[in-house]
Structure formats: C-alpha cells, structure tokens
Amino acid sequence: MSARHERAVAFTLNGRRVGATVATHETILEVLQREFGLFGARESCGQGLCGCCTLLVNGTAVSGCLYFAAFADGAELTTVEGLAKNGELHPIQRAFVEKSGFQCGFCTPGFILMTKELLSRHPQPTEDEIRHYLSGNLCRCAAYPDIIAAVKRAAELMRA
C-alpha cells in the first residue's frame, strides 16, 4: 500500500486525544477495534441498517461500518465505553439495566447511543419520537417494549 493510501488521523476518543495511522478504505469501526481495543461498537449488518455499530461523531449518531476512519480526523468521538464516569454508569445505562432493556445485549450499545442523541434533542420524548429515532436499530431478541420503557426511564433520570 502506498503512502497515498494511508492517512495519519488525530481525534478525541471518549475525552482522550489520540492518533492513528489508517488506510483510506478502513472504517472507523475497524480502527476502534484494532487500534483502541474498543468493541462496544460492533459490526452486524455492515450496511447501516441495524445500528449495532453506532457511535457519536461530534455528538451525532453515525453508523461506524459506513464511516471512513479518515473522516474522523479532528472530530470528537464517543463510544459506549465513554459513557460511564468514575465507575458510575451513565443514567441511560442505568435505565436500561433497571428496565431490562435487552436480552443478549449485542445491540445494546447502539440503542444506548441513539438514545443519547434522542435525549439531547428531545429531553422529554413522546413515544412517537422514541420509535422514530430507534426505527433504525434492530434487536433480534425483540426486547423492544422494554427498550422503549428504558428510554422513557432514562429521560426521567436525565432530568432528575
């Protein structure tokens, strides 16, 4: 691979300044796993449909499987690993535990990060807004009713 096909990138990852050399065709999902050992965002469909690889780029949810790592240069990235502070789970994580908003947990990081974007825009979301935001996240265990209850509980905890 020639130098033109590589890129040095620097970004903030869960509050820490980091850098990496990436191939132009690598997705941010691949780089998070290979360079930083972060597996919270994980590939499932590989087409942006299922939401398992969700991460926040400058506070906005994106599909990590479709997002070139080179495009993350200069951005602020948040993965599910960055939510807990000082050993305390984030209120959204607590709400998912409290309401059992999962079964196997494979899709849970994606749901939690979509919920984070939702609540940043709609602190008191209607059921319709919750469904609208989460319609692009698939849970093959079909824990959907508990996930929606968890999102409502998260909104309460975030306001408290």
Binding site: G48, A61, M114, S135, N137
Partner: peptide
C-alpha cells in the same frame, strides 16, 4: 428516508 444515522451523514 432510511434512518436517523444515515440522514445525519
């Protein structure tokens, strides 16, 4: 149109 993540990008 698609989903929130795709529309964001």
């Amino acid at each position: 149109l698609s989903n929130v993540r795709i529309r964001n990008v």
